[in-house]
Write a protein that binds this DNA or RNA. Sequence first.
DNA 1: TTCATGGTACTGGACCGTCTAGTTTGATTT
DNA 2: AAATCAAACTAGACGGTCCAGTACCATGAA
Lengths: 218, 218
Amino acid sequence: MTTTRSAGVSEELEPHGRSAKKRRAILEAATEVFLQKGYLATNMDEIAALAAVSKQTVYKNFPNKEMLFVEIVSSVTNRASDRVHSKMPELAEGEDIADYLQRYAYRQLTTVLTPRVMQLRRLVIGEVGRFPELAKALFDGGPGRAIAAMAVLFERLADRGLLAIDDPAVAASQFNWLIMGEPLNRAMLLGDESIPKPAKLRRHAAAGVRVFLASYGK
Amino acid sequence: MTTTRSAGVSEELEPHGRSAKKRRAILEAATEVFLQKGYLATNMDEIAALAAVSKQTVYKNFPNKEMLFVEIVSSVTNRASDRVHSKMPELAEGEDIADYLQRYAYRQLTTVLTPRVMQLRRLVIGEVGRFPELAKALFDGGPGRAIAAMAVLFERLADRGLLAIDDPAVAASQFNWLIMGEPLNRAMLLGDESIPKPAKLRRHAAAGVRVFLASYGK
DNA sequence: TTCATGGTACTGGACCGTCTAGTTTGATTT
DNA sequence: AAATCAAACTAGACGGTCCAGTACCATGAA
């Protein structure tokens, strides 16, 4: 352990020490550059410069480029995953199931179709060969987690007699890709400018929910 | 023009000359290496070695690494796109529409969920920043073309009274992602070993078609 | 048919310039 | 005294070029 000077609780999560601040600056800079240029095209000098820190300080905090990369990608992945899964919309009292599913779908769309998240996906996919663990982590924390959460939700709704679902996992996966497939693939290949505007996403979500409910509605 | 020795028709498409053979060896080797390691991680010496050709010969045929890469990727993209769209299944006389759509879906799945095609997708996605035209080409020749073809098919089936479709383009996109979304995303992030076996793909296709027809069937 | 000739492609490897991960140094800050 | 800084440095990789010599292949002469 390094000199734990006086551990206020807030300092535990985000310490104010000089070193800690620099460390965070490095992480921030590295995130920026790695996400934008990819692993190989990124060089450590640029990270140091952007963090306004000497190269030496970078290497005092992280053993090498690879470790730094893994750390920032894991961190961004986890943050994004948590953001998607916090404040999941609840079914309001007496709310129409279609409206509810549309809200759910729309929320999913807007939290995933973000330049940051899309860059992360592209980056990780491009590095599947070099860093398969990162891809696995993104899979588990992204679509995997989302679909699993949706499955338990669907099961509850089915129990309440609001949906006619035999296999919640299958239904959740179908719902997910009915909603996310098209815009996700588009944004993946055509870049962040191709992300549809909110109004369009709303219509897209509505169309997907319509199909879903034709099969699983009551 | 160089000495056109005697132009048999077959030679026009795949010349036997010494240079031409070497050129093809280079293309083959480059395809192999680029698809496996990505653009930056590939070095020209390795390509030359794998093609059993001197580096000089590589540079006699292609002006630089970038051009070679673009040629490779374009070529693989086009070949894959054509393979997917050749021999599209036709609706047999009196065949059940569900059976037909399942055949269609299964065919789509098995032609796309191939190590080669998946590597190509990963590669292109990872290089969206550096080579956006390649990504656009993959988009147009891949999902874009597939969905467009499906849309005209659905429109025909609707005209024959076999489907109840208002917007064929929307229906085609929904069908496509209902079928392809899950396994495509899985294979993308978890690698080629995660590609499901034919039996599983068949069941997956059937489940997707069921949902689709609940909404668009008659 | 056989042999010489010449043009062209190819080889292998040296080479140049540049880039980059990571280290070292010696001064400066706090 | 500990951390940080700027800058130089090491060691190696890589894109691309160059060059001296070799293999291939057409044509024309013998």
